[in-house]
Design a protein around this nucleic acid. Structure first.
Lengths: 222, 222
DNA sequence: GTCTATAGTCGGATAGAC
DNA sequence: GTCTATCCGACTATAGAC
């Protein structure tokens, strides 16, 4: 239930926020108690009311914080993607999709993504107003950019919906290693996912993404 | 919060069980209240104590019920898979993986899977003793069979761990359409997933699976 | 800004009527 | 087997001391 070591350097509102992402992700909005969150953040429940206006306010603030953190990490990649989208070079677009998905897989297997991944998956299953914050803030843009690149990478023959479905399926390959973590560990017999395991996962996702796009391009040309 | 129309024909313990899968899936073990489950099943809380020995007992019974239901549906497919595993025919194995994943995708997009899919995803994120029931009962066997077929389909060069990683990635493509449903609807602009949408999703998953396996086989032969 | 104390609600378990 | 009534603990929110 504890947070990272930087807890000491964070202000109390920040500490509450990062703890909230973790605990809400594990227990859900109704399953998490404000007492437990406050205790894990080293303070008392009434501080949640004071700083975030109550449990609901803390939950929405947690969603905003997640969208912000992810946005900071991938905005640079979006700029590169936008350049390649404009260039209309299929080979470059394919390479960029593979690079983006590879980076996405890398983020997904790293422990930092665990807390907000759990939070996001819960919002998928039972969306609340927080889902709008997450989708509008980062998820929608990710799909927009990758699917635009997928269209380019396959020679421009894919319709927008099919490109989006293919994008979701491709990204799903990387996502599964985060949200089905318990199954991944059981199936492989791994105790944890460290450097070696990460490399194996990323290699598989890269190989699959390349194979899918090359095949889709060949199919489009026929 | 209501269940299917067959509620009238089910016995009270069965009604409690199917309602519990739905509500636990949405709210989680701690988020769901026994009063809410009992009310949705048209009875009172004390019936949960009587029939399942309390909230925890009901939760484990829900997990057993899920494993049982899925097991009934896929055991026939396992028999066919086992025959092809023994035959060692790469083309047949490839076709069988595509067929299994296609059927899996079909189940994943249908509304019946929604309730137990949510339940399973929660167990992935925060495993409880119920995870052992789910993994041992059905998930492990699914991965065992598909990965054995993947080894055959790619010419027998894949190691067991890589075959399992590839299997998880392939299955992840189908899974994502279930557990990231909210994002799928937003990204495509669909209001729901009916016959036409299901066909589009299955087409994408089939195409990707075929492309991945064909490429892996070609790579293994080099 | 941060804490303690308290009020009011809702949760799960159980006893007992039918 | 099913329900009602009740107990007790845990929860959120809030008032007020420092």
């Amino acid at each position: 239930m504890n947070m990272d070591d930087s807890a000491q350097t964070q202000s109390l509102p920040e500490r509450l926020l990062s703890t909230a992402i973790d605990v809400f992700g594990r227990k859900g909005l109704e399953g998490a108690s404000t007492r437990a969150i406050a205790a894990a953040a080293g303070t008392t429940m009434s501080m949640i009311t004071y700083h975030h206006g109550g449990k609901e306010g803390l939950y929405l603030a947690a969603a905003r914080s997640i969208a912000e953190q992810i946005g900071e990490r991938i905005t640079p990649a979006f700029a590169a993607a936008a350049r390649i989208e404009a260039a209309d070079d299929a080979a470059a677009a394919l390479a960029q999709v593979v690079a983006l998905v590879d980076e996405f897989a890398n983020v997904m297997v790293r422990p930092e993504s665990a807390a907000w991944a759990r939070f996001i998956v819960r919002e998928q299953m039972e969306p609340t107003p927080a889902f709008d914050i997450l989708y509008g803030g980062v998820m929608g843009r990710l799909i927009d950019h990758i699917s635009a690149l997928v269209v380019r990478a396959t020679g421009g023959r894919l319709g927008p919906t099919e490109a989006r479905l293919r994008t979701i399926a491709i990204v799903g390959q990387a996502l599964v290693f985060r949200f089905a973590r318990a199954t991944v560990l059981r199936a492989t017999g791994w105790a944890s996912i460290d450097a070696e395991e990460t490399a194996a996962i990323r290699g598989v996702v890269r190989a699959h993404t390349t194979a899918i796009l090359a095949d889709a391009r060949a199919g489009a040309e026929t």
